[in-house]
Design a protein around this nucleic acid. Structure first.
Length: 518
DNA sequence: CTAGGGTTAG
């Protein structure tokens, strides 16, 4: 892009804005330096695209420097500038700085609130994101289609179906439901909260659809154990003349992997480049590694990686997962090494290795991995599960006795175990990770957070309604078996959403076809 | 000439 050397502030502003829009962020910042060298000062039009560029370059020092500069220039209370600053801090995951900017703002509009909301949702602070949405409405700021889309996405991330429904209702009231972005986020929200029929209904009613719409539905079916449906939707997408993009293929390969469609996965992997000119990225390789290794083709997965130029931690983690399935400790250690080379504080490889050694009963190696983890100061996220009952969330940790109805819950838990034992349940202590006596391991498994949550669900959820349990990590294999049997023994539908996918459990079967497990 | 959103995901 031509440099507007020698011209005035407005030419620079226009050029910087064009660069930022075109994704030429370093160029935008370079133009700013050039502009200052000529003695020109940034104004309220210069700063927003610069802040945006700094954020998207993940250049926190640049953002802080721009912050100092705009304070000196007296632009801190300019609404556009403050909004851009808030959003930059949010995009840089500097939550405290973002919050401070927000708190200091003398005026806030729908953009301010949307930046805050989206930033909180990105950071995984779902409850705070929900508060931001209510705060916006409470402050008398009417949500627009951007705000509604962001709010729905936050609901999806929190798997908060009821909150999502109420935002949907608000969107209808405000006349925003016909926006493509709102439709897209509705499809995704309903699919991610397990309400597939609603997702489909919104999809069918949409007047216009884009690749995002189709991708949301493809992924939705895959996450809910309906991989064959995902492939049908993809076929419809192509038939409708909509061009699949990078993300569509991630979703499609994810669907193939989840459903165990090896041939279809291989074919689509070839087709993405050959027919659509989409170069495979790390995400696609990770899906393929997952797909091939689950089908027992670890060799083929390795061959694929040798051909690929783009390898990142995602791919190595997928390979690590494959090694766990195949109990291949040597390869797993190598894959873990590769992840650590990129980020030594990533907890995933430690947990995976520890799991693998535990299943092989190699307790010495389990202890070694734990010690390594401790010495490097790495902590893993503690597992927890939660159930919503009439709008109240009940959260449980392992062996949690903090709930007001704890003694009742534990009696139910004992009863659950008795009933499934009578049906032939045998605890699979391979999933108990402690090196301890067998009966201790069984106890540990029986008191996993997901099981406590299910016991509570049996007590507190009306018999006709499905019990919806959420877990922040993946469900363990033993709990998966046990909860399937509980669903049958108590004739209840149990929907367990874990970090990986949905498990619709009914009559002793699960929608994941046990494929999600290792 | 300026600010926010919607699809991936281990």
């Amino acid at each position: 892009m031509a440099s507007p050397a020698g011209r005035g502030l407005m030419s620079y502003n226009a050029a910087i804005s064009r660069c930022a829009r075109a994704g030429l962020y370093p160029r935008a910042l370079a133009l700013f330096r050039e502009m200052r060298a000529q003695g020109l000062r940034a104004d309220e039009y210069t700063l927003p695209p610069l802040l945006n560029s700094a954020a998207l370059l993940l250049a926190a020092p640049a953002a802080a420097a721009l912050h100092a500069l705009l304070l000196r220039a007296g632009l801190a209370s300019h609404l556009h500038v403050a909004n851009a600053l808030l959003d930059a801090y949010a995009k840089l995951s500097l939550g405290r700085a973002a919050r401070a900017v927000f708190d200091e703002m003398p005026r806030r509009d729908v953009v301010t609130w949307t930046s805050l909301l989206a930033g909180l949702a990105r950071a995984g602070a779902h409850a705070a994101a929900a508060r931001a949405y209510r705060g916006m409405v409470g402050a008398g700021v009417a949500p627009d289609e951007f705000a509604v889309a962001a709010a729905l996405s936050a609901c999806a991330g929190a798997t908060a179906l009821e909150a999502g429904r109420s935002v949907h209702a608000a969107a209808l009231r405000l006349g925003l439901a016909a926006f493509l972005s709102v439709g897209n986020s509705l499809v995704s929200m309903y699919a991610k909260t397990g309400a597939l029929r609603d997702a489909r209904a919104v999809f069918d009613a949409m007047r216009a659809r884009c690749a995002i719409t189709w991708t949301a539905l493809i992924v939705g079916y895959a996450q809910n154990g309906r991989g064959a449906r995902s492939l049908e939707v993809y076929a419809d997408m192509v038939r409708a003349g909509c061009r699949p993009d990078y993300v569509t293929f991630v979703g499609l390969l994810f669907a193939c992997s989840h459903a165990g469609f090896v041939d279809a996965g291989r074919a689509h992997f070839r087709s993405m480049t050959a027919d659509y000119g989409v170069a495979p990225g790390p995400d696609h390789y990770a899906c393929m590694v997952d797909l091939l290794s689950r089908a027992g083709r670890l060799e083929e997965a390795m061959d694929l990686l040798i051909d690929s130029a783009e390898l990142d931690a995602t791919v190595w983690k997928a390979l690590l997962g494959a090694c766990r399935v195949h109990r291949n400790a040597e390869l797993a250690e190598r894959a873990a090494e590769m992840v650590w080379r990129l980020d030594p504080t990533d907890a995933v490889p430690y947990v995976m290795l520890s799991n693998l050694y535990s299943r092989a009963r190699r307790w010495g190696d389990v202890a070694r991995i734990r010690a390594l983890m401790k010495s490097r100061g790495v902590t893993k996220e503690p597992g927890c599960s939660w159930v919503g009952v009439s709008g109240v969330m009940h959260l449980f940790h392992v062996e949690d006795r903090g709930h007001p109805r704890a003694s009742e819950i534990y009696r139910k838990l004992e009863e659950m175990t008795e009933r499934i034992r009578a049906e032939g349940y045998v605890p699979d202590t391979d999933w108990a990770l402690q090196d301890e006596a067998p009966e201790g391991k069984e106890r540990g498994l029986a008191y996993h957070s997901e099981r406590i949550a299910v016991a509570f669900g049996l007590l507190a959820v009306p018999a006709a309604a499905p019990i919806r349990v959420f877990k922040n990590l993946r469900v363990c294999g033993d709990c998966h078996t046990a909860i399937k049997m509980v669903a049958k023994a108590y004739d209840r539908e149990i929907i367990l959403r874990d970090a990986n996918c949905f498990h619709h459990m009914k009559d002793g079967d699960c929608s994941c076809g046990d494929y999600c497990l290792n």
